[in-house]
Design a protein around this nucleic acid. Structure first.
Lengths: 396, 396
DNA sequence: CTTCTTTGTCCACTGAGTGGAAAAAGTAGG
DNA sequence: CCTACTTTTTCCACTCAGTGGACAAAGAAG
């Protein structure tokens, strides 16, 4: 099948496409209720969209007491590819134009192997999804990478945990390989967009999305739009000082949040504790698994292990202190906690909440929910699909 | 004179008004170069603005080799009132529509005396400026208050240092008294707007403006617009924890930035040092002045007093540490330092810079200027005038 | 079968905005 | 003084987005 190449011709059409994406199929009349255009004008724009093939009219809806309406919907054959590259694994998913996930793959991977090797794997996963009949091709792809990105060009800049990617033209390269438009962003920003589109942040204009995985980052949404900062490094909170003269960090400083709490730090601390004989539970897991990860700590905590619980609580306290500062500064309407460490669940959340509610001013915390992300590992790929769909559903 | 009540009738007119405000008088042709409208359409909109009286055509400009152009300018009789209420003093200024300061008064005052007493003083100052022939009346007024504001209504909410103001309808009350439209905002936001309009931040879209006065606050500008947060308390960084288990703060916590460095904290620390005999310089000033303020510390530092310099440096370090965190998080294109403590000058700035450049990641600090505000005490009142002019120069 | 409701289409009209021509008012040079 | 060239402003016919009302289509309810 020939892929769609059309783009909305004006702001009205863009608006309609987004309404159909976020609200599902609608009749012309229902669309008219939402856009403040005369029925005549609306009909014209819908007709133009039908001509481009971006939307289709299929069948008649049930009557509600009058003439039956036509169902207008986004072309059901459109396919977006969402890719979320983490530090140690990749997620690849296929969605339709309404951003519903049709298929999702997850594989372990090491970003440090560099862009060429990683993209080989990503393309293979995409091919697998295509082969399973979910897509004949892709109309667009969104890619998340674990580091700062020069957004307009889609190029990672000075990413600490993936040095080989510095300056690699991700957008251009993948656009060539996939034969479709590509947008690239920081993985944390995509998680924020995912939770905004289909998760806990659906109704909030200004919020923070803290992702605790191998590292720690924070997506910032201002007025419904992701804020990326002057050089694309906004939200890089992993190297904020959490402990004066604390642990040495890979960045050269001491006491960085990431050095004290993150997937990597937690694994290291748990291993240390096990080796020092502080926890039989952790020690036995160390023996079975060979090495400890955040998952082991979560399991130990769930089993009631005091050492594991302490580690989580202390990490949560550190993180909560930093978030408390950000809450005072940014005064968000919501704080979402997500990432691989979400498995630590309520223990972590409680520690974070305690710190924030205690340290920030009442005006900022009075009506501030602090919650876990709703979408888990799907947030990134949904956000990626949303990124490219926002791009393609804007006037060319 | 009857005050102007007209507002621009559409976005084009609003655009033109702002061009005239920020760029001064222009011919129709010059305006046409900036707005991407046909000459015909432009002429129509300019004529409409002339009809409203918001702009006037006075005289012909010198020829540049062809027909002489008419000078189109904002009505020179328009007057805005800018009011900047601090913790211990008020600034009141009159500007024309181009936001040039025509007169400026500054008087000591105590916010804690409550809105009624303060506004009596403000109105007297405004009357004085009017009596001196600078204005026959005001077409609009902007007011800055030292605490969070529910912006749409212009009402302070839960302001820590001015408890008597909580819920007082500043906007409505002053609008009645002055007989003109009024907008109210946090003083820090106005300082940011001032520096953006006429100071160091003219060309930057995303920046932070840290104001160190009696307390500490931070104006946040995102994409050229002030960001106020969900409840209007964004930028309230005075109570971010700077020192774990540090000094007790009025807010009930310990170690808040404001408890360790601010105009008030500096005065207190200097007095303590003088009483303990650590500095002859400060002790002698204590005797002469009766009580020490930040100004005394600045003077002592300028005279080379080691204790004063130490106090400034330590405060700068604390502040710098907090700002370093904000820089990592927000990735601004500029950081402006202002407020009453600006007199501490380069010593303070150097300490702040050292901390930020050392602690934040290179990508965020690589091209990040950290500078003192250019406008000093005028920033607030200019920002206030800008606030109301932005409001009045937007379509009704 | 009639009446009412809802959906969708058609069409004349308005008003924003364009672009080109011409008028107005200069400068520069012979 | 006259001519050629510029720049600014005005005028006007034309395009096109968008409106709102009339009307057709298609069904529900009685």
């Amino acid at each position: 099948m020939r892929r769609m190449t059309a783009r909305p011709g004006n702001a009205h059409q863009a608006r309609l496409l987004k309404l159909l994406r976020d609200g599902g199929p609608n009749s012309r009349a229902q669309l008219g209720d939402q856009v403040d255009l005369s029925r005549s004008k609306l009909a014209v724009e819908v007709d133009r969209l039908l001509e481009t093939g971006l939307v289709v009219a299929d069948g008649l809806a049930a009557s509600r007491g009058g003439r039956r309406s036509h169902n207008i919907r986004l072309n059901p054959e459109l396919r977006f590819l969402g890719v979320d590259i983490g530090a140690t694994s990749v997620d690849v998913a296929v969605t339709n134009a309404e951003l519903e996930t049709l298929g999702h793959l997850n594989q372990p991977m090491d970003v440090r192997e560099g862009p060429v090797a990683v993209f080989e794997q990503v393309l293979a996963m995409a091919a697998k999804l295509r082969a399973s009949g979910l897509a004949e091709g892709f109309d667009g792809a969104g890619i998340g990478v674990p580091g700062p990105v020069r957004f307009p060009e889609g190029i990672p800049v000075a990413p600490p945990i993936m040095p080989g990617w510095d300056g690699f033209p991700v957008r251009e390269a993948l656009s060539q390989e996939l034969g479709c438009p590509v947008m690239v962003d920081n993985d944390v920003n995509l998680m924020a967009m995912g939770e905004q589109h289909a998760g806990v942040a659906r109704t909030v204009a200004d919020f923070l999305c803290v992702k605790i995985g191998t590292g720690i980052g924070c997506g910032i949404v201002v007025g419904g739009e992701v804020y990326r900062g002057t050089t694309g490094s906004a939200g890089d909170i992993g190297h904020i000082q959490a402990v004066p003269d604390g642990r040495p960090c890979a960045c050269g400083n001491r006491g960085c949040l990431e050095a004290h709490f993150s997937g990597a730090a937690l694994a290291r601390d748990a291993t240390e504790a096990a080796q020092q004989g502080l926890s039989a539970e952790l020690a036995s897991r160390l023996e079975t698994d060979g090495g400890l990860t955040a998952v082991d700590v979560a399991a130990a905590a769930a089993a009631g292990d005091a050492t594991a619980l302490d580690l989580i609580r202390e990490g949560g306290n550190r993180t909560g202190q930093v978030i408390a500062g950000l809450v005072s500064f940014f005064n968000p309407g919501l704080v979402v906690i997500g990432g691989g460490v979400t498995g630590l669940g309520h223990t972590l959340l409680a520690a974070i909440r305690t710190q924030v509610y205690r340290q920030s001013l009442p005006l900022a915390t009075g009506n501030l929910p602090i919650v876990l992300g709703e979408l888990g590992p799907a947030a990134g790929v949904i956000g990626a699909a949303r990124l490219i769909s926002d791009h393609l559903f804007s006037p060319a």
